[in-house]
Design a protein around this nucleic acid. Structure first.
Lengths: 247, 247
DNA sequence: CGTACGGTTGACGAGTGTCAAGGGTAGTGG
DNA sequence: CCACTACCCTTGACACTCGTCAACCGTACG
């Protein structure tokens, strides 16, 4: 059934589809749970998709039909209100998985996912993916691990939103982004670009644009960070930054 | 090995250990994924444990050795700082599962779990449970579902903590508790006891005791809720309350 | 060169936190 | 059975952080 399967060279036993073999998140994403053979199942379901900044992948209230892996770029997961308030409840980096509730009931998606930078996804239909979840326990286990990590992160953010001062929030946010960027090899430890503008930062840490701006200025004046332009941050002293991030 | 196992009547094939058969959360907890036969495996590992209000099950920084199901009572999952600030990141009701990160690394538990009312747990060693997770896919699937639900809840709370006013927070909190209580059959829809005192409510919704108190008074004065004593709430008009809860 | 957009800065005000005092209620001991 | 005590809750006065409104600046792009 799989045209890769009737290969003749034993050395090719593990041959993967081109798109998977060259995928930047082949091992760091959920797909890392699948062997070269197994990944064919998922590959057959999947196709790439590109989004420009500002484009949405799902809207609040939609029924989500497709799941996806982020292969490149950054997206935001957000909830908005009629009166203009907005809260970003998560950021999606390369290797992150998009496929929310997955509960038995086909309820509507409560959040909007929007590209923040040019975004590359590898999408596949929900139904087909759930079949594979049953078929490959390692896949389900990896999804569980990922979900537990996101829960952990969400709870840390609850501490930030519930109990930290404006200054601590900004410092914590910068630390988190620095770590994400380091993990994805985007630049070195001390210098990196913020993937979000001031408005999105504010919506992520529960402040206003102005307060975010003031606190960044403050951190600059106190020499905790340095900046080149509005987006590029230099965090020489990680320990000092951690002191500013609160508990 | 299990004295219930050597029964003589075929009708008893599905006989369960006494403690499981009479357990209040036999089906609503993770155990609901296990058949009468299968649950013996877990039962052999488990034993009951009681905690009085104020006693802790795990401390921040501990290595968690045991997992547990809540069979009765309410507990809080919290994170504190040296300078006295505290954030409650979750409440644990009957049928809820305690067994956090479960990640490969044996990292320390980041949160403290403390009984809020007289608490009954069914605890079992982490190692043994993880073996059962491998053995019974339905168990792992249920754990995944549960974790996804908690993630969903955590994100809703991020919206509350990041963007809602004091009044909206209190109204939302009351709604959530009302629903939990209804689900657990503790009293009717309109009248129920708050499981938390003002201090814990404040630490859960990111306010101070005084502000919580003032907002509850406000809701009373506006006729949205009524109270009998400081703990018992009467929420006649659920729709009205929802209007006060924001988005 | 002009325009638009995002970021910064300042002045002011609202909402919530802080500090302090006073009241209820439940549990304890006489 | 009543009084005392302790704890939690409520209420008030005031302070402070952060939000709001508005002007200005810098950079990118047409």
């Amino acid at each position: 059934m799989n045209y890769e399967a009737d290969q003749t060279f034993p050395a090719d036993l593990g041959a993967e589809p081109e798109r998977c073999a060259t995928c930047a998140v082949r091992n760091s994403s959920l797909c890392g749970a699948l062997s070269s053979d197994e990944i064919n199942d998922l590959n057959k379901l999947s196709r790439p998709k590109s989004l420009k900044p500002g484009q949405t992948f799902v809207f609040e209230g939609d029924q989500i039909k497709d799941f996806a892996n982020v292969t490149q770029g950054v997206a935001k997961l957000m909830r908005g209100s009629e009166d203009g308030r907005e809260q970003i409840v998560g950021l999606l980096f390369p290797s992150d998985f998009i496929g929310g509730p997955m509960s038995d009931t086909n309820q509507d998606e409560p959040y909007t996912i929007e590209a923040v930078s040019p975004l590359e996804l590898c999408i596949f239909p929900r139904d087909g993916f759930e079949v594979l979840l049953e078929k490959y326990p390692a896949l389900e286990r990896k999804l569980l691990d990922r979900t537990l990590n996101e829960l952990q992160l969400a709870r840390e953010w609850m501490v930030l939103l519930g109990r930290k001062t404006a200054q601590e929030r900004v410092a914590t946010f910068i630390m988190h982004v620095a770590e994400k960027m380091r993990n994805h090899g985007c630049q070195g430890t001390i210098g990196f670009d913020l993937p979000l503008g001031r408005a999105d930062i504010a919506d992520h840490i529960g402040l206003t644009i102005e307060t975010v701006s003031r606190q960044i200025t403050q951190l600059r004046k106190e020499g905790v960070i340095d900046m080149q332009g509005a987006r590029h941050i230099l965090a020489y002293d990680a320990d000092r930054l951690r002191d500013y991030a609160g508990f």
